[in-house]
Design a binder for these strands. Structure first.
Lengths: 97, 97
DNA sequence: TTGATAGGCAAGCCGCGACTTGCCTATGGT
DNA sequence: ACCATAGGCAAGTCGCGGCTTGCCTATCAA
């Protein structure tokens, strides 16, 4: 669980996606894709973004809802609390690699 | 800067090292090495740990001080605050189903 | 129904990161 | 002086992760 969280955060593109969803929730795959290209100047394919979103969803950092042929993505920052409670406030370690 | 921070946190062994230094600061390379092997049951060489510490030091998550032929390592959790201020602060906490 | 749109699946390429191996420097005890 | 200890450096192996390519399914509008 913590493994997937930190793995998801390891990639700079995925962090950009989190930034995007933080400032504007409920975006579809194509919205995120075009915004990353235009606003952030990143050149990546739709599938690349799709795979990034899958990793973020596996880490529970992004929640999705389907409506018709659209799939909307929302940021879910709560798992980040674990990082704070692990080292910023001393607490027993909990990792299972 | 943020790049090195998240890259450092991506590896489970490095997280273990942070846990170790959190519960007992000022350890040398060999101390960390033996503790990881005995307490956590990890099998890694001295050089592996040394390289991990270098990554953690580059991310400013570990501060070191030399004394004679010893090099002591201490946890420096302050960079983790950036994670909180990046996604946790801007958006208030959500529901937890 | 047809075509366009939104998204998914799977195989493959490729570079980076984790780890090892071998050798080197330096400090300190005796 | 000698040798053990503490650590560093560099090259090499190897698997995994990011990305592409190609094709497939599903939904909606005309």
């Amino acid at each position: 669980m913590a493994d997937e969280l930190f793995r998801a955060l390891a990639d700079p593109t995925r962090r950009r996606i989190l930034d995007e969803l933080a400032e504007r929730g409920g975006q579809s795959l194509f919205e995120i894709c075009t915004r990353l290209v235009t606003k952030h100047g990143l050149g990546l394919s739709r599938q690349a973004v799709s795979q990034h979103l899958a990793v973020l969803e596996a880490a529970d950092l992004v929640r999705t809802r389907r409506e018709g042929r659209y799939k909307f993505h929302d940021l879910h920052a709560q798992p980040l609390e674990h990082i704070v409670t692990r080292w910023l406030r001393p607490s027993p370690p909990e990792d299972t690699p």
